[in-house]
Amino acid sequence: MSKTSEKIAEFIESHPTLNTCALAAENAIKKPVFGCQDCGQCILSYTAFTCPMRCPKEMRNGPCGGTRADGHCEVYPDRYCRWWLIYERAKKLGRVKKLRKLQKPVDRRLEHTSAWLNVFAGRIDPPSWGRE
C-alpha cells in the first residue's frame, strides 16, 4: 500500500488492545456475512465474495474434480461446492475474469490475523474492487 498505511498498521499492531479490536471488528463483519475462516489473506474480491477456505480441501484456485451434478460438494453432499457458488455468483456480479488469477500458497503465519491490517502493512496483495 503506502508508507502511511504501513505506519497505521504498525501502530495498531504494536498496541495489543487496538490489534484485538481491529481483528474483532473484521471478524464481526466477515464471519456472519462470508463465513470467514480467518486465513488472514483474504481473496474474497477475487472469488465473487464467496470464501474458498470453506472448501474442505481449501482450494483457492478452482474446484477439485468432485463437484456433483447438482452443484453440491463431494465431501458434504448437503452443501454447495464452494467453487460452484463462486462461479455462479461471479457470473451474476460480472467478476468471472477475476477467477483467472493464480492464487499463491497460503502463508500459514498469517492465519488468525487481520487481513485488513495485512493489506495495510503490505504483507498481502490489496483487494481488486473494480468490476471487469
Partner: peptide, 16 residues
Amino acid sequence: NPFAEPFEFRVMNLAK
C-alpha cells in the same frame, strides 16, 4: 475433469 460442474469454469481451470 470435463464431466463435473461447474462445466464452463472447468476450461478456465485448465487454463490456470
